[in-house]
Nucleic acid binder design. Structure first.
Lengths: 111, 111
DNA sequence: CACATATATCAATGATTCTTGATCAATAAA
DNA sequence: TTTATTGATCAAGAATCATTGATATATGTG
């Protein structure tokens, strides 16, 4: 489960990295993020735009929130969600980590 | 299922993006990638390093390969796997896409 | 050819995830 | 205080995913 987002903490934590990627591993959640990147948005608005049932949307918002991808804010009876910039930075860092230290492995002789 | 990796094709395809992220949403697969980023590697070597059973490793390699994250090459009886640079570029592009067009949504009035 | 090795695939099982509809909690308005 | 609205949570079922052990498919060697 998501605890906090901090620069540099993720690369050596496959479980946390997997959680973050899992949050992104669903078309509905990607569509939610696609909406949220335009700015903060309430659930009812997302329901309209994504043609998704309320509990289904709520489920996916929870996954995204638990992973730290989005944050919420209550205003009256509305919940407003928005993308968490820190998580985007964390994602960047993770993707960068895949590219590091590509040194030559010994050329021949397996196992 | 994965078909091909091409710059620019993914951002508007949530199903493809989800497949790519799903491939990364597992600690074992992240550990595989962590090994592969050091260079091409055969399955038996991964089995040793990751302390994972052969069929389990084979399963995860297939998921990564189907998603286009890695490529394979046969040499004699060994299969060598390595990271697919094009997929890394695609990932970069996807993460970038989360940051685009953060224009202000209308300030008040929900639904 | 017979045998060994490396790896893929298959089948069964258990675990996790997603969807749906129902209910609950909080807030606001009449 | 009753009623409406927004959204979270819960329970059940379906779908997907991961693990394991067994078997199949190369490929190479004697």
């Amino acid at each position: 489960m998501y605890i906090f987002v901090m620069k540099g903490i993720t690369v050596r934590h496959p479980a946390r990295a997997a959680e973050l990627f899992h949050a992104l591993a669903d078309p509905t959640r990607l569509e939610i993020l696609d909406e949220l990147k335009e700015g903060e948005c309430c659930v009812c608005e997302l329901t309209d735009r994504l043609q998704a049932g309320q509990s289904r949307l709520s489920f996916h918002l929870k996954v995204l929130k638990d992973a730290g991808m989005i944050v919420d804010r209550r205003e009256g009876r509305w919940m407003y969600y928005s993308v968490n910039a820190a998580a985007l930075a964390e994602l960047d860092e993770l993707v960068e980590s895949f590219k590091q230290t590509k040194r030559a492995r010994r050329a021949s002789g397996c196992c």
